[in-house]
Design a protein around this nucleic acid. Sequence first.
DNA 1: TAAAATAATGCACTTCCATTGCATTGATTA
DNA 2: TAATCAATGCAATGGAAGTGCATTATTTTA
Lengths: 138, 138
Amino acid sequence: MNKTEQFLQLKGIRVTAMRILIYNFLSEKKVTVTLSDIENAFDKADRTTLYRTIKTFEDKEIVHQIDDGTGVTKYALCEPNCHCDLNTDLHLHFHCTQCGATVCLTDHKIPKIKVPNGYIAEHVNLVVKGICDKCSVK
Amino acid sequence: MNKTEQFLQLKGIRVTAMRILIYNFLSEKKVTVTLSDIENAFDKADRTTLYRTIKTFEDKEIVHQIDDGTGVTKYALCEPNCHCDLNTDLHLHFHCTQCGATVCLTDHKIPKIKVPNGYIAEHVNLVVKGICDKCSVK
DNA sequence: TAAAATAATGCACTTCCATTGCATTGATTA
DNA sequence: TAATCAATGCAATGGAAGTGCATTATTTTA
């Protein structure tokens, strides 16, 4: 049993071929991916399976969703100690309007946000749009 | 010619009955609205007209889009000196997970966000989720 | 280890929202 | 007033998300 398999088992889900493949696919990517990206990478597999695999990964805090404002949900592997549900360890996401890539800037934590009296903040989503490092040098 | 009509003309678009109605509808709302909300308020009008009216308002910086992560695009009137395209005057949005309302917290400006070298930030979208003031007192 | 239980996968559908083409109606301008 | 251009309405499309159910695979336990 290799690292990926051990990891999935540790997370309390069944280790299947599909899950190993999708997990490895995600870990190779430096940018966030859409369901369609995964679909294109595994055109033999059914869309629903991929969809539900990602949902399972989300539930088990293996991946997190990113809403970058393009209208399509992006996904990325969580960091080792990520607790996406909680108000901790929130990093920001950058969406490049040129190449369309969305990346996790895990080193850039989100500053404390003040909300008015009576409001209770539970989750923060911060997306910066602009030109990424690869596109800005061209 | 009243205030609304003057305003629309100032923005460089034709003043039509539909546009006046939609503008007034938006200005009465304290929360952001979806296209469906507008549709329900004007069930005599065609969906496409409402859709394109909002798009026109967006182009002319009369309304701005809010992506609160619910998957449905929300809209709200811009503030007097709002330039949504530019990196100025960005306020944050609050989405209440209980009542589903999304409000513009126009008094709460977004802190300067640092991005890594090579990245060029052009726009910032910040959505805080939690419980709003009305729901938290219940 | 075979049978029973539970979970994962695949197929077919459905729903919802966003968007477009085209004809028609309405508003502006020459 | 005719010609021009923009706004509206209708019909249709496309994309993404999500669900029900049958089938296959994996795990448990008797």
